[in-house]
C-alpha cells in the first residue's frame, strides 16, 4: 500500500520513509503518540496532501485514479470535515450525489449510526460524539472495500465505543480492509488483529497484536519451585537465558517459553509450583517500543540547547 512515504511540512518532517501494507479481512490498528504522523499518513493515502517522496496506492491504483473513490475508501478524518451550517442529511446527500447514490442509502446510514432524530439539524450543533457518528456514516456511504478511520472513538460514550468496536469487527469479517488509528491502546488490543506502530513518522513495529504484546513482554515467565538451585542450573544451560530471583523460590526467566521451562523441569524431575507467562498490556508494550523514540526527542532537545 505505502512505499517510502515521506512528507515534510516546510522543515518539519511529519512522515519519514514509511512503508506498509494493510491486509483485507483484518482490523489493522495504526498506533503512535500524538504528532507521530498518523493523520498525515491518512491524508497522504487520500491524496489530500501530496507526499514529498514515496508513493501510496489502493488496490494497485492511486486514490485519485479510481472512478468511484467512495466505493474504494470510506474515510473518517480526525479533523472535522462537515460544513457546520448544513444538516447531517444534506451533508450526506451532497456526498452521495457525486457517485449517483440515492436518498434511500442516505436514510439507511442515518438510521444505522443512530442520527435519525437529529438528521435535519445543523451539523454545527452536533456534539463530538454525534459528529463522529456522522463521519462514520459518510465513510460507509459508498459501501467501500477499505474503511479508514482516524481516532473513531474520540468523544464517544461507552455505548458508542462498543458500537464502533462491533462495527469494525463486522466490517473486517465481511472481508473489508479496516485501517483504524487510535491513541487508546486498550481499545486497540480489543479491536485490532494487526498493528502498525509509528513514532516521529517512522515505522517502529508491523506485526500481529498478539506478537506485539508477546515481544514487548520480553518473553518473561514467572517460575515458582522448591528446588530453586537445581532448576536454575538446568535452565541456564541454554544460550541467552537469564534467571533472576524474584523472591523465595520465585524466578523470572527470560529467553525460554513456558513450554520449554516445563519440559526442562520434567526432564530433570523437578517440581514446579507455578509457571506463568507474563503478558505486558498493550500500553506497556507501546511504552517499551516507543521509549527510544521519546529518548531521542529528549536528546534532540539537549543538543539544541548545547548549540544555543
Amino acid at each position: 500500500m505505502a512505499e517510502g512515504l515521506t512528507k515534510y511540512y516546510g522543515e518539519q518532517r511529519a512522515v519519514d520513509d514509511l512503508s506498509f501494507t494493510v491486509q483485507p479481512g483484518l482490523v489493522t490498528g495504526f498506533l503512535g503518540p500524538n504528532g507521530s504522523g498518523k493523520s498525515t499518513t491518512m491524508r497522504l493515502i487520500l491524496e489530500l496532501d501530496a507526499p514529498t517522496a514515496g508513493d501510496v496506492t489502493l488496490n494497485g491504483k492511486h486514490y485519485r485514479d479510481h472512478t468511484a473513490p467512495l466505493h474504494e475508501v470510506g474515510a473518517l478524518l480526525e479533523a472535522r470535515s462537515v460544513h457546520t451550517g448544513r444538516s447531517a442529511y444534506n451533508h450526506l446527500l451532497a456526498l452521495a450525489h457525486t457517485h449517483g447514490i440515492g436518498r434511500r442509502r442516505v436514510d439507511e446510514l442515518i438510521d444505522l449510526v443512530g442520527l435519525h432524530d437529529v438528521a435535519r439539524k445543523r451539523a454545527g450543533k452536533f456534539s463530538l460524539g454525534m459528529g463522529q457518528r456522522l463521519g462514520i456514516a459518510a465513510a460507509l456511504l459508498g459501501d467501500p472495500s477499505t474503511i479508514m478511520l482516524d481516532e473513531p472513538v474520540n468523544g464517544l460514550d461507552p455505548e458508542g465505543i462498543l458500537w464502533v468496536r462491533h462495527l469494525l469487527r463486522g466490517l473486517a469479517a465481511e472481508g473489508r480492509t479496516v485501517f483504524v488509528s487510535s491513541h487508546l491502546m486498550s481499545e486497540m488490543s480489543l479491536t485490532a488483529d494487526h498493528l502498525i506502530v509509528i513514532g516521529r513518522g517512522r515505522k517502529i513495529a508491523d506485526m500481529s497484536t498478539e506478537e506485539f504484546i508477546r515481544q514487548a513482554s520480553g518473553g518473561l515467565v514467572l517460575v515458582r519451585t522448591p528446588q530453586a538451585a537445581e532448576l536454575r542450573k538446568a535452565l541456564l544451560s541454554g544460550p541467552d537465558v537469564t534467571v533472576t530471583a524474584a523472591g523465595p523460590g520465585l524466578f523470572e526467566v527470560r529467553g525460554l517459553t513456558a513450554v520449554q521451562i516445563g519440559e526442562a523441569a520434567a526432564a530433570n524431575q523437578l517440581v514446579l509450583h507455578e509457571l506463568t507467562p507474563q503478558q505486558a498490556s498493550l500500553e506497556e508494550a507501546f511504552m517499551t517500543l516507543t521509549r527510544d523514540d521519546v529518548e531521542f526527542k529528549a536528546a534532540d532537545l539537549e543538543s539544541e540547547e548545547a548549540v544555543l
Binding site: T67, A68, P69, L70, H71, H83, R86, N90, L93, A94, L95, A96, H97, T98, H99, G100, I101, R105, E108, L112, L140, G142, D143, W163, H166, L167, R169, G170, L171, A173, E174
Partner: peptide, 26 residues
C-alpha cells in the same frame, strides 16, 4: 450484536454532472 452494513446494489462512478448535482444540493 455486530451490525450488517447494507450493501449498495450498484455503485456509480463520479461524473461531472453528478458533481454538479452535489454542488446544487450544497
Amino acid at each position: 450484536q455486530a451490525q450488517q452494513i447494507p450493501r449498495l446494489s450498484h455503485t456509480g462512478r463520479v461524473t461531472q454532472l453528478r458533481v454538479a448535482r452535489s454542488e446544487w444540493t450544497k
